Simulated assay, not measured.
Amino acid sequence: MLYVYTMKNQILFFFLFFQISLFAQKRDVQVYREFVDGKTIVYADNSEFCPVSVVIRTELVNMKSSLKKAFVLVPAQTKKFVVTELTVIDKTKKVSFKYQSSFFLGDIDLRKYDINFPYELPYNKGEEYLIGQGYNGTVSHQNEFALDFAMPVGTEILASREGIVVDVQDQNSGNCMKKECAENNNFVVIYHEDGTFAEYTHIDTNSALVKKGDLINTGQKIALSGNVGWSSGPHLHFFTFVPDIEKGRISVKSKFKTTSNKPEFLEEKKSYLKEYE
């Protein structure tokens, strides 16, 4: 889009390019600009239920930006949050700018979070399930800290940690062993207070018991397990992650309450009985 403004002896050319990068996410975020008191102000409306990192890339001619770094963290449910202010350097010369914006759920600059948080096993008391594939598994978990709980379709999935639901997909059906089938995954994503996320994947079709914006307690029923998407059999694929500007997200290890006195990392090919509620 090309916007042309005439101010006294000055012509301002504004080229606005909105582009979602390869790893950026399609989100309920709007970035727009207004011309106020001689300045161009770029705003963001974030209608998501967690903070969103808005990445801005600019090309400026005879202008300067108030941006201190490449992105701005926009709080959840915020309207008209100032992303940057662009001001003219020399009003007697031609002025133009370009900017691209992309969005990531959460803080892409997150460095500190609770690595020792005691997650609860995501199923009911008295149930026991095998970890079919663990961290850095050879089938589909290469370089990923994810866990596959081998459980029958229809098993009640419980939230391992309290938070707020930021994404739900349960309309897909069918499965296959090709990586491309990951686009057909069903899932629930929950945002935690320390800035991390947990994704519960392969839930059954139309089985989600929560929706975006719901506040979730630990142990609350959120969905039923399934065998949908990139899956070779019925199981719950669970992992926690932090957002990343290059990879989109990076999985992180999670410790779980088991029968031991201290939370521990779950191991592949071991079964875990839940003895608490």
Rank of each mutant, 00 (worst) to 15 (best):
164 I>G: 03
193 E>P: 02
166 V>L: 06
160 S>K: 11
191 Y>K: 05
187 F>A: 06
208 A>R: 08
187 F>T: 02
176 C>F: 10
165 V>W: 13
212 K>A: 08
173 S>W: 03
195 G>T: 07
186 N>Y: 04
161 R>P: 10
197 F>Y: 15
210 V>D: 00
182 A>E: 14
208 A>I: 09
209 L>S: 09
198 A>W: 09
148 D>F: 06
201 T>R: 05
144 E>K: 12
160 S>Q: 13
149 F>I: 06
183 E>V: 05
154 G>P: 05
143 N>T: 07
202 H>D: 00
195 G>P: 08
160 S>A: 15
180 E>Q: 12
143 N>A: 12
185 N>C: 05
201 T>H: 01
209 L>N: 09
199 E>L: 12
194 D>I: 00
167 D>C: 00
210 V>I: 12
149 F>S: 09
188 V>C: 00
208 A>H: 11
177 M>S: 15
170 D>P: 02
201 T>P: 00
151 M>Q: 14
151 M>W: 10
155 T>L: 06
164 I>W: 04
204 D>K: 02
195 G>R: 07
210 V>P: 01
208 A>V: 10
164 I>Y: 02
211 K>G: 04
190 I>N: 02
209 L>G: 02
203 I>T: 07
168 V>I: 13
187 F>D: 00
200 Y>Q: 08
193 E>H: 08
189 V>L: 10
164 I>N: 04
165 V>T: 14
163 G>M: 08
150 A>V: 15
204 D>G: 03
167 D>S: 15
204 D>C: 01
213 G>W: 03
174 G>P: 03
154 G>V: 04
175 N>A: 13
176 C>I: 04
175 N>V: 08
169 Q>W: 00
206 N>I: 01
200 Y>R: 09
190 I>R: 04
198 A>T: 15
162 E>M: 12
191 Y>A: 14
191 Y>L: 03
146 A>K: 12
181 C>D: 14
202 H>F: 01
165 V>A: 11
197 F>L: 14
147 L>F: 13
144 E>R: 12
165 V>E: 10
162 E>D: 15
179 K>S: 11
193 E>L: 13
192 H>Y: 09
198 A>F: 08
145 F>R: 12
156 E>F: 06
156 E>V: 14
183 E>F: 04
163 G>C: 14
153 V>H: 01
